[in-house]
């Protein structure tokens, strides 16, 4: 009886050793990547960050299925690592229907490690925002005056 138990234990120990590599293969790990990421900032036209919004990345080779999806961070930032040169699209949208599409030209030089910085959005701040607001109100009242004049005639 003892002999049988001993043989069984030896068999199980051997099996465990054989499977050790297999078990370790399901572990996790990380390493610093040398790949160049494309980092973007998304904001509303008032300058406010598009925080925690849904973001989808479309590669030049497949415009239908997203290459990557996720969310922007609190500051409206989102990054991805392109794997080929060409025109990449990043679409960020909120629950209210606002959407921003960034089109990024990734060159072979960028993939090889060159820097890339593009400013494609229109951000309105302080004075410009105020001027545009005043222009809008002025236009509304001018349109109203034109309509009133037509009614008077």
């Amino acid at each position: 009886m003892r002999g049988k138990i001993f043989v069984s234990l030896v068999f199980m120990a051997g099996l465990t050793l054989l499977l050790t590599d297999e078990i370790f293969a399901h572990g996790t790990g990380y390493r610093h990547s040398g790949f160049r990421a494309v980092a973007l900032e998304f904001m509303y036209s008032t300058g406010e960050a598009m925080s925690y919004r849904e973001a989808r990345v479309f590669s030049p080779s497949d415009e239908k299925f997203a290459y990557q999806s996720g969310r922007t961070d609190e500051a409206g930032r989102f990054a991805f690592v392109p794997d080929r040169a060409g025109m990449w699209r990043v679409i960020v949208r909120d629950e209210e229907g606002h959407q921003c599409t960034a089109e990024i030209e990734v060159t072979a030089e960028t993939l090889a490690g060159g820097s890339q910085s593009q400013d494609t959005g229109t951000i309105l701040h302080g004075r410009e925002l105020l001027l545009r607001g005043m222009l809008g109100i002025s236009l509304i009242f001018n349109i109203a005056l034109i309509i009133r004049r037509r009614h008077a005639h």
Partner: peptide, 28 residues
């Protein structure tokens, strides 16, 4: 026709209201 200027006033308020952001948790 007598209320066209009033209409312009309300339209201006609506035009500017979009700039007034209301913060709701992490969103606005």
């Amino acid at each position: 026709p007598d209320r066209i200027i009033q209409t312009a006033l309300i339209s201006s308020a609506f035009f500017l209201a979009s700039l007034v952001n209301v913060r709701i948790g992490p969103s606005s």
